[in-house]
């Protein structure tokens, strides 16, 4: 009587279905996307304007504040997207929908990848929005050309993936949407304690030490390089390594925390 179905590419189809579901929710509840789009745009507009002269200091490597701030704003938006992906899971846990997913015959890793896939797709929207505002209204430049744009999108996708895995871990432990506050604190701390706003040369004291070892600094540099000049392997490599390590580490963290859901 029972049919045990096995369709080709099941894992891919499951991931695709999760991404599709997430995007559908965004269409039907646009307010979900507002903070993710508005906040990074606000960042790039406000910080580029307020700190227009700061780029005259040593270390910025550009004469336009918007060139410096755009990468940071993009990664803020990507991090928010990752947070949103975790938020959807928290809602699913609270309303019981997550139990339906857990009783389905799918590997937990596929489930996690699907949820992160949604965050990645989600990150493309604020990234594109920030780039449009920066280039069309704030006069940003990309001397790094097409490769510079590619670096921006790769960094944003990586940031969304890492943040999403991290937030999923938090959500699996606390099983509540309220736990996003903890994730937000970590997100803002890591973003602000980096070279996001200022170059290492302009940061003093312990903040300098933290920003230097903060792996997010490498990701930001990778993202920003095209705005400041040519895209080089010397700038890309540490960023890629940092990003992959962050993704791998948080993926393991999320997988371990997944076991906590049933407690």
């Amino acid at each position: 009587m029972t049919n045990s179905y096995t369709v080709k590419g099941h894992s891919f189809l499951v991931g695709q279905a999760f991404v599709g579901r997430g995007l559908m929710r965004m269409r039907r509840l646009p307010s979900l996307m507002l903070p993710t789009i508005v906040m990074p745009i606000f960042f790039v507009v406000a910080f580029s304007g307020s700190f227009a002269s700061v780029v005259a200091l040593e270390g910025y490597g550009t004469d336009k504040a918007v060139n410096w701030m755009t990468a940071w704003a993009v990664l803020q938006g990507a991090a928010f997207s990752g947070l949103g992906g975790g938020g959807l899971t928290a809602t699913d846990i609270e309303n019981g929908f997550f139990d339906r997913l857990r009783t389905a015959p799918i590997n937990p890793s596929v489930l996690l990848t699907g949820l992160v896939g949604y965050s990645i797709c989600r990150a493309v929207i604020p990234t594109t929005a920030v780039l449009i505002v920066s280039f069309c209204f704030l006069g940003a430049e990309m001397p790094g050309g097409g490769l510079g744009f590619i670096m921006v999108y790769i960094s944003a996708i990586g940031m969304a993936a890492f943040m999403s895995f991290f937030v999923l871990g938090i959500v699996f432990i606390f099983k509540s949407i309220k736990s996003l506050a903890i994730a937000q604190i970590v997100m803002f701390s890591t973003m602000f304690l980096s070279v996001g706003q200022a170059p290492l040369e302009a940061i003093e004291g312990w903040l300098n030490g933290v920003a230097e070892v903060n792996p997010i600094s490498h990701v930001i540099r990778m993202c920003r390089q095209g705005f400041l000049g040519e895209v080089t392997w010397q700038q890309t490599q540490p960023g890629l390594i940092a990003m992959l390590c962050l993704i791998a580490g948080t993926a393991i963290w999320a997988r371990i925390c997944y076991r906590k859901v049933d407690i």
Binding site: N3, V7, R25, D92, F98, R100, A104, P105
Partner: peptide, 25 residues
Amino acid sequence: LQDAAIDPLMTGNELLKLQSVLHGI
């Protein structure tokens, strides 16, 4: 399960399709 675990933003059809994908149909 208790308290029908259903995403209120989805339609009945969409939920059934998602469930079908999860079960590899």
